[in-house]
Design a protein around this nucleic acid. Sequence first.
DNA 1: CGCTGCTTTGAAGCCCTTCAAACCAGGTGG
DNA 2: CCACCTGGTTTGAAGGGCTTCAAAGCAGCG
Lengths: 239, 239
Amino acid sequence: MIDKHLTKLRLRDDINAEEERAIRETIGGAVDYPAGHVLIPRGKEIDSSTLLLDGLLARYKDLRGGQRQITQLHVPGDFADLHSFTLKKLDHSVMALTRVRVALAPHEKLKRITEQFPHLTRVFWFATNLDAAIHREWELSLGRRSAIQRAAHLFCELRVRLGIVGLADDSGFALRITQLELAECLGLTSVHVNRVMRQLREQGIADFRGGRVNILSWDALQEIGEFDPLYLYLEKRPR
Amino acid sequence: MIDKHLTKLRLRDDINAEEERAIRETIGGAVDYPAGHVLIPRGKEIDSSTLLLDGLLARYKDLRGGQRQITQLHVPGDFADLHSFTLKKLDHSVMALTRVRVALAPHEKLKRITEQFPHLTRVFWFATNLDAAIHREWELSLGRRSAIQRAAHLFCELRVRLGIVGLADDSGFALRITQLELAECLGLTSVHVNRVMRQLREQGIADFRGGRVNILSWDALQEIGEFDPLYLYLEKRPR
DNA sequence: CGCTGCTTTGAAGCCCTTCAAACCAGGTGG
DNA sequence: CCACCTGGTTTGAAGGGCTTCAAAGCAGCG
């Protein structure tokens, strides 16, 4: 059940058997939610963190006018809010973009990990720092990249992140979200996202339709988005 | 020397005498750098984290075309790269926007803290999660706020963050950076920042000149930027 | 006193938004 | 089985916020 999560952790660090057991004892049973469900509303005190097993989750914030910005997407194997362990309440909301399956990790148990497993604590700490690195890359996109560059870059990121857990390959990946939701990731309107998708399609770079991104030219996609996966920390770091 | 840092930590959590001693033993001697100096270049392996004692630091990333996005500003008392403890090398660079004074915390010593001081570990973990919360708010600004809203929001954020360490009050605060650097924070051009500054001045809201932000109407500034300090986690959280 | 870096202003243009409406697919009920 | 409804996609036309390009203004400093 938490295999994807372990795969992801082990890509970056060594997890021994005892630590794996500690993780398994920390994660509770699976629960399902429908698309659109808000799992964590902004500002609410929470006492456990949510591990995504299946589906897509989004962290988002919105403005009074109803405008919404998705600040990060979560793929299976991600903790959607491991940071809530130290923050207690979140500055953003978390919602399901598709039907999702999640499991909870009570903060009480995570606290015990910080007391008994220093290395595992650093591994989890790393995971939240990786989230922050993704936030920074999105800041760069939102602040400096053009619409088509943002879209290309996001597709590259998802190709890599989903690939780690076996949900993407060179041909593409499932992305069962609407153009409006994609626009909320990219800081654009859905109308303009539609035009950008047409550009990517007509230029033979990528094709987003029917809930799937087909990568037509991985090289061109990376080139347009100026994608450099350094920020995803894909190698094992020295201990 | 690290008083500002302790003030900041104690705003959010309790630090006992033993923990304070551990922190003091972790932080090395002060070093100065001139404005413009790159303290940490992107991608370089580093073995200590940088605590800012005085001056202003910026985390930034840039694109091939030379366009730069500042992803966060650091004020005195902040760790500029506590996350490098788990990341080892950074996905962004860190540079001095003004003359700065910093002190280093070797990762080896931080590791010892994770092994001997679980609570203090959580406090430091929290600090990096707070950084991420600021990144998210900037994503919202970059993605959805207009130029004048972004500027107003940033001034609000700096008023609060600098206020915590006694470097801002209701009248304003020192901000010794250029309009170009401000533009690099806001995802705008320096030309447009100049026009936005004029608007804020003419509307009697804020006045940025001579390396200082004068707040003319705190209420209007918050209103325009839709500033809600929740994401700065200004209260003590339940243990 | 002239150099340098930053600020300010103007004019033109473009990327993206806004508004509006048509189109389309899937699901539901008569 | 088709009419209808709903939510999402696609397209067009017009407009605006911000950029780009260019140059003048200004302050601090050697």
